[in-house]
Amino acid sequence: MRWRPSPEALRLALPVMALAALLVSVFVMRPNVMGYNGLHLLFKLGIPIALATLAQMVIMSVNDLDLSMGSFVSFVACVTATWLVDAPLIGALMLAGAIAVYAALGMVIAARGLPSIVVTLGMSFVWAGLAVLVLPTPGGTAPGWVAAVMGARPALMPVGIAGSILIAVLAHLLIMRSSFGVLIRGVGGNERSVSRAGWSVLLARGAAYATAATFAVASGITLVGLMTSADANIALRYTLLSIAGVILGGGEFTGGRVSAIGAVVGALTLLLAGSFLTFLNVPPDWQIGAQGMILILILALRLLLVRLERRGARA
């Protein structure tokens, strides 16, 4: 028997190769990046982006899309930079309340069959408004323990890389290996069969949204740890970045087909693409376009791989 890689591994191969290719190009262009310090700077902002991407991935695994991700992470950042410093207990309660709101949203969406895009788009304005209420002018400070963790310099590898690997493994175990993960991916794959098997889709969706909110809260907290302060618009671009990261990492909009490791790799690839373009001296006006081109290129390659996969299955 010939060994054939599993479809899952094949799916993951592309984002990993894209990340490696970008990394090698950056190393060739700027050899001084290759040290500990260079990698530290290059991947520093990776942890919050990876966490936001995982949050989006959990939402996408139940066939929904969260358009409020950026403003929610911004809101969390504002709470972290103010209440979590001055009154940690109240701050923690506020964040727990935000997670509960997410769970309730998931259940409302499930119970009333609402389009998640519309609900979360509406919520994005609520979160943005709350963020401005919490922190009207930019400022605040990072809680000491967050700043200490994010500013740590582990001996073996920079905190950005170590943290990303840790997050990817934990999320993989939760979403791909646990029965909870199977359940929520099942909701995305075939809702009816999940409910016929005796599970409550309502609770499953609520749990998925709560899990996503937990990842997003972690993203906001780590972001403040890196930036040392917050403002109400700090993470707005995470909405699009997180969706692009999931797709880049081999996830799909429907069918509960997601990959936790892929999502983290996708997020880091997008992060690296920005540096890559700066090092290439691509004018800023063209950078968004160029980033889009990288995305299209990788997605085109994926389509090709999917076709190969199908041909392999037929043979």
Binding site: L45, M227, D231
Partner: peptide, 25 residues
């Protein structure tokens, strides 16, 4: 003396840009 403008007027994007400038030396 090169000028770089971030596309989306976002602090996170500009922080990444500054980090790239550090790497550029």
């Amino acid at each position: 003396a090169s000028a770089f403008t971030t596309a989306e007027n976002q602090a996170t994007e500009q922080a990444a840009q500054i980090q790239n400038m550090i790497l550029e030396g």
